[in-house]
Nucleic acid binder design. Structure first.
Lengths: 136, 136
DNA sequence: CAGTATCCAGAGTGATACTG
DNA sequence: CAGTATCACTCTGGATACTG
């Protein structure tokens, strides 16, 4: 951790900042998790509204049941996604939704998604150029 | 790919958009790559200015030589980073720098880094709460 | 300095089966 | 529906050693 305006020992306020370039800093571990394929796709999907387990499985193409369940549990633990169970119906209905904190993260990763969707052709052109150069 | 304003078959302009939720869409493959730990850290580091191989290895704590070399080559191929060799000195000096396209990506991922550094405490609190609940 | 080559442990995936 | 569990397989990533 760098300098920061820590207010109380052990339970700092929101102003404490970390350094992602230090392997030991907890912030780095957090970045490792959110800079993750399934995390990014799931959070972005949930931004459209609450969803169910199997709905997410269908919507996020290619995710395995294992990774879906694993990623959802991590997101829940990190306070980014809430899990609510409606036991009054059969079979039990489980709904996943973005928390307010999760919402702030979606806002932060949205530019990255947009970038990928808009710059894909520029990257493909660059790859073609690079590959041609290698072949020659 | 979704609808888009493709202008010429095979070589669309910048306006073609992809859909990251489709496993087959090239955009998804691109997102998989940029939503990557070392890519994010390297690009952010290079935003501070051009750097050398071993300098990057020191600055980005924890990166292995293999992943550094591999990631740099991918970034170069994708047109995000340029590699220039100065053979007039011994030993050969190789410098890596952000390209203009790479610069636009850094701008897009910066909010995510900021989020991780600022929200780390909120996430830690959430984890504590979750773990306590599980233990009980 | 700037890498490449090799080996190996572990993470992630898919398929399948099973539970409440 | 909403998962957990297990096996087999691939593939990434880290450690180590070597090269120009």
């Amino acid at each position: 951790m760098q300098e920061g305006t820590e207010t109380s020992p052990g339970y700092p306020q929101v102003t404490l900042r970390g350094d992602v370039f230090s392997a030991q800093c907890p912030t780095r571990e957090l970045l490792d998790r959110i800079a993750d394929k399934w995390t990014v796709l799931l959070l972005t999907m949930l931004e459209r509204g609450p969803s169910r387990f199997n709905a997410l499985k269908r919507e996020v193409d290619g995710v395995s049941q294992k990774m879906l369940s694993q990623t959802l549990r991590q997101l829940e633990r990190d306070g980014l996604v809430s899990r609510s169970v409606d036991a009054s119906v059969m079979p039990v209905a489980v709904t996943y939704a973005l928390t307010p904190l999760g919402g702030t993260l979606v806002t932060a990763i949205q530019p990255m998604i947009d970038w990928a969707e808009r710059r894909i052709t520029a990257v493909r052109d660059a790859r073609r150029t690079y590959d041609d150069r290698q072949a020659a």
